[in-house]
Design a protein around this nucleic acid. Structure first.
Lengths: 229, 229
DNA sequence: CCAAAAGTGTTTCACTTACACCCATGA
DNA sequence: TCATGGGTGTAAGTGAAACACTTTTGG
């Protein structure tokens, strides 16, 4: 290890695959590049890691700077280090994936900058660097993860209906679920708090609202409970 | 992004959590450090990434150089980038986890160097850097992964008995499994090839040998099959 | 003949799946 | 009163878990 300082060091960046749920579409947040290489092309929000910040801090800082998002759910995805992935120089990027409650942030991101926008995952523009690959992995991870960890709630508002919850799973997993079986299962888990409220503004019978009971989930976990959709 | 070249770049290394199965013990391969910092302390095999090699290539090269291991099963684990994790300078490490058939490699690794050795995961020495944390994550990943992907076979010889297979799961998952149910389940998956051979040298009835049928598994996967223990 | 592990089936229970109708509400 | 989604139960089938004895082999 000691001979290493002679070598040129790679640059290290972070990139974020940010997922949001817009009605019945799964979307990803992209920024339009303002510099070469790939000037004008859409890319994942991200940037270089500062010497005095941890990797997750760098990811959060870049998200904030480039898109205005703060306090989102964030988890490391994968590190991409192919020698030629950046035409300028060797850049190793630590990719993260984030889940945001779009209802809370949409306005913000849209107004902040013209070069930030949400795209449906099924209709992405051409992406800079190897970001296509990063997105694909993020999507795979989301589909796998959502099934055995209650992370999907991060995409919904604090208060949601069972229909919204089911639809979230249907959109991410890309298949239909049976309404009665879904309700039976999720309610049987005993991780939802039934609120004394209903959705409003719908032109038909209003549905009951629920909240995810995180502390309840945690204590169930310790007791050996296994979340699974 | 363009202002970044002014910043000092972090060093980037790879470290490998190498698992092996020794009879009924899960072991990890460690090397004893020959340089500061942490001189003389045990650590994960690893080292700095060269400018012209991909991350997985770096991991394989370091494994080969430091332990003599080649051609092992390797997968990225996580990237650790805490600012202070290396006392010399900022070092970001991409951790990998590897599974090896110890029966094939044990002699080699042991003879090559006095400063390479296998340790039971339950009795590890004090480790350099944050390698304790890396190992812990590797172990968690192994336990999770082995249950829904047939990676455990990488720890066994090409030909193995059902007892060996079951014991591998018992050791990794740290719980007993029912023999009859286990056999029913694994044989029912139809991913094992029953050989016309038996183990030899045992002082009791010899068990039949099996091989993992990888191509069969792959085609089952495409048909929607879900491996799970 | 003894010790040690190989090999084998059945029952019970829980969970998953498939499936259709009435109700409440706002327009 | 109509359109739209909210809300509910049951039966059949599938898979998981619990459980004990006989067989084979080498020493």
């Amino acid at each position: 290890m000691s001979h290493t300082y002679e070598y040129p060091r790679p640059a290290v960046s972070v990139d974020c695959v940010v997922f949001g749920l817009d009605e019945d579409q799964l979307k990803i947040l992209l920024i339009q590049r303002g510099a070469e290489p790939f000037l004008g092309m859409w890319a994942l929000p991200g940037g270089f890691v500062e010497p005095d910040e941890n990797l997750n801090e760098a990811a959060r800082r870049e998200l904030q700077e480039e898109t205005g998002l703060r306090g989102v759910w964030l988890e490391q995805l994968y590190t991409f280090g192919e020698v030629d992935r950046d035409p300028r120089t060797r850049v190793i990027t630590v990719a993260w994936f984030a889940l945001v409650k779009m209802s809370r942030y949409r306005a913000r991101a849209a107004s902040d900058a013209a070069n930030v926008d949400w795209f449906p995952v099924s209709r992405l523009p051409r992406l800079a660097f190897d970001h296509r690959k990063v997105v694909r992995l993020g999507l795979q991870r989301l589909q796998a993860k959502v099934r055995y960890q209650p992370v999907g709630f991060e995409l919904l508002p604090e208060k949601f209906t069972l229909r919204q919850l089911q639809q979230m799973y249907e959109v991410i997993l890309d298949r239909q679920l049976d309404k009665r079986n879904f309700r039976k299962k999720i309610l049987g888990m005993d991780i939802l708090i039934e609120l004394d409220e209903q959705e409003s503004g719908v032109p038909h019978r209003a549905a009951r609202l629920y909240r995810f009971d995180k502390s309840r989930y945690k204590s169930l976990l310790k007791a050996g409970f296994n979340f699974e959709i």
